[in-house]
Structure formats: structure tokens, C-alpha cells
Amino acid sequence: MYNLKLDKFKGHEGYEGVKRWLEHIEKTFRVLQSQGNLPFERWVETTSWFLGKESASWWEQEVCHLTPEERADWEVFKQLFRKRFVPPQYIDRKKQEFTELKQGKLTVNEYYRRFTDLSRYHPEVVANPVEMLCRFRLGTKKKWRSMATTTPCDSYQEFYEILLRIEDSEDMPSESEEEGKDDNQRKDDKGKGQASQGPRKTQSFK
């Protein structure tokens, strides 16, 4: 394990540091598990080897309040770990970003990904599908929102799929635009044909 060059977590890395460290640990463990070298129920125990003094002391205290099953549960560890080492101010800022998110110039896909990513900082809203749909709908472009509300849906994922179809239809050229392009193309072709003929040459009979 130590040959894998996994850094120790010292406890003051901040949110981005927590995220990178956990992702690196988890990715490494998945590879080891796929090779049959590290069963899932050993992930938490193995992670404790790479905790610094402060973070190790914190985990020892947490373990006292957990059941044997929870102590070996990787998802439980990640949840408690983030709760302890991610600054509350960061969570509050992300919650505000989620609440104030608007589509603006974003594409439907970009807005959907941003909305989904930020929603994890507001678990109370995520637990309510009706509230999620309402917030997602309010953040979309007013014109598209009016068009999409004519189609019933039960989740923000369904509303997202409706918006995708609206976006695709707006990107497609209208029939009048197509006809205009065809007319212009015919004029261009005609002009090119005339230009290619060049001046006429008269035959000399001398």
C-alpha cells in the first residue's frame, strides 16, 4: 500500500484538497479491488493508515459512536469525513449558488450538469422531487420555460429532456430559411456559370 504513493491527509487541505484526496483514494481502492487485493469492507480500515495525526484522532472519536457495520461502511466514512473537513462557509456558498442558479447563456446540457452538481450541497431539496423540479424550471430561459410547461412531467430530469427537444428545434433552420438558402444558392450557381463563360470570341474567316 505504501508503494502506491498515497499522500497522508493532514486535515487542513480545504474542500478541493478533500475532494482530490478522496477521489484518489477511492480510485486506487477500486483498482485493488478489481485485482482481488482489497475487499470493499476493508476500505475504511485501510484509509485510516493514511490519516495524519489530527484526522486520525478525529476518526478514533467517531468510531466510538458507530456500529460495527457503520465503521466499515465506506459511504458513512465519506459523509462524516466531508462533514468534518469541508468548511461550513464553503457549503453555504455552494447552497447559495444552487439557489440563485440561472440558465442564462448556458446550453440545456450545461445548465443541467451545473444544477445537478450544485444540488448535492442542498440535500433537503434533493430529497423533494417536486421542489427540485420547481427550482430547475425557474432557472431556465423564460421563453423555453413557457413552451416546456405545456408538457406534463414529474421530475426535473423529464423537464430537462423536454428542454433538449426545444433547444434542438430552435437550432434547426426554418422552412423559409431553407428556401432562402436554396434561392441564394441557385443565384450563386447561375452567376458562376455566366462568369465562367467569359467574353465571346468571334471566328475570323480571313
Rank of each mutant, 00 (worst) to 15 (best):
F85S: 11
D73V: 09
A72N: 14
T140F: 01
F98I: 03
T116H: 09
K78H: 01
K83G: 01
F115N: 05
S119E: 01
K95N: 06
P88V: 03
T107P: 09
E124W: 05
C64R: 15
E110D: 14
E70D: 15
R114Q: 15
K102G: 01
K143Y: 09
D92H: 10
C64E: 14
G104K: 13
K95G: 06
F136G: 02
P68W: 07
T116A: 10
V130L: 04
R71P: 04
T116L: 06
R135K: 15
F98H: 12
G104W: 05
E131M: 08
R82V: 08
L66D: 00
V130Y: 04
Q96N: 13
V76D: 02
G139F: 05
W74V: 07
L133A: 10
P87D: 14
K142N: 01
P87M: 11
R113E: 15
D117V: 10
T107K: 11
N109Q: 13
E131K: 08
V63H: 00
K142V: 10
V86G: 13
R71I: 03
Q79K: 15
Q89R: 15
V126C: 12
Y111V: 07
R137I: 11
N128I: 00
L106Y: 14
K94Q: 14
D92A: 13
K102Y: 10
D92I: 03
E131Y: 02
F98L: 06
Q79V: 12
L118M: 09
P88C: 06
K143C: 00
E69H: 07
L133R: 11
R82N: 09
L138G: 11
K102F: 07
E75M: 08
E124C: 04
P123E: 07
R71N: 05
F115V: 04
G139P: 05
E131A: 12
L80P: 03
R135Y: 08
K83P: 02
Q96E: 15
E69G: 00
R114D: 13
R114G: 14
K105M: 08
H122P: 03
V130G: 05
R135V: 09
Q96V: 08
Q96I: 10
V108D: 05
K143H: 11
K102I: 09
T140L: 01
V108T: 12
H122G: 04
Y111N: 08
F77L: 03
E62Y: 03
Y90M: 02
L66S: 07
V108N: 08
G139Q: 07
